[in-house]
């Protein structure tokens, strides 16, 4: 990763994260196919919803014949963390047009969010729509294609985990977290490690009383509150 914010640089920077999209996308396609979704339905879900964990939740709820408002509410809760990520990224695009802002927000994911935050450490706090849109669009297309291929392979592959591709997503979170910690010059590493430790402990406790997605949201909010309080001037 370097300081360039060109289309080419966007392509280069998004490349490592694609393994995560492919791994989870294939898995989603296979799950969708075995849950009796057609390839067209799998493709439409990837294009219209475009959110990994929410798509798994929706698929299982469709299989159970859940009422549509219940699925919309679940989707909102699973994706509520996007509000935090969008608010964070949006601060860097206040000077861009509303159309550009909506374009970037429309395709923002956990991964491109983290990529953008890492990039800031190489560009003196600058981000450009060209760079962000390139990363977003490539990720979007690779995701949609991977889920369709997963759906087509659904009949053939009985054990998609054997090759370890599902771990690409976890490895990516490790990498993005590490790069974020060492790259952020505004915050001391010691402080960041204490916040990380606090979030780990909170996740452990919260998982006893709530679903994984709610625990992620609550631990994130509590971790940010903790950071805000200890750095208060």
């Amino acid at each position: 990763m370097n300081g360039d914010l060109t289309t080419r640089s966007g392509l280069h920077d998004v490349l490592p994260t694609l393994f995560g999209y492919i791994g989870v996308g294939l898995a989603f396609g296979i799950v969708g196919q075995t849950s009796h979704l057609s390839i067209l339905e799998i493709l439409l879900m990837s294009l219209l919803v475009y959110a990994g964990s929410a798509q798994f939740v929706i698929t299982s709820m469709i299989l159970a014949g859940s009422p549509i408002p219940a699925m919309i509410l679940s989707t909102f809760l699973v994706n509520a963390r996007m509000i935090l990520m969008s608010t964070t990224i949006a601060q860097f695009f206040r000077k861009s047009s509303l159309r550009q802002n909506i374009a970037i927000g429309t395709l923002l994911t956990d991964e491109t969010f983290a990529l953008g935050m890492s990039k800031l450490n190489f560009t003196n706090g600058q981000l450009k729509p060209t760079w962000f849109n390139t990363a977003n669009i490539v990720a979007y297309l690779v995701w949609a294609l991977s889920t369709v291929i997963g759906g087509l392979l659904g009949n053939l592959i009985t054990n998609p985990k054997a090759f370890g591709f599902d771990f690409a997503l976890v490895a990516m979170f490790i990498g993005l977290l590490y790069l974020q910690i060492i790259g952020d010059r505004q915050k001391k590493i010691g402080l960041q490690l204490w916040i990380v430790l606090a979030v780990i402990i909170m996740m452990y406790g919260l998982l006893i009383v709530m679903s994984a997605n709610m625990a992620i949201l609550c631990a994130t909010i509590l971790g940010c509150l903790l950071g805000m309080v200890v750095t208060k001037k």
Binding site: T88, Q91, F173, I195, L226, G227, M228
Partner: peptide, 12 residues
């Protein structure tokens, strides 16, 4: 508050 979102969300 938001400046802590990247590390907290990635950790979670």
């Amino acid at each position: 508050f938001l400046s802590f979102v990247p590390i907290t969300i990635m950790t979670a």
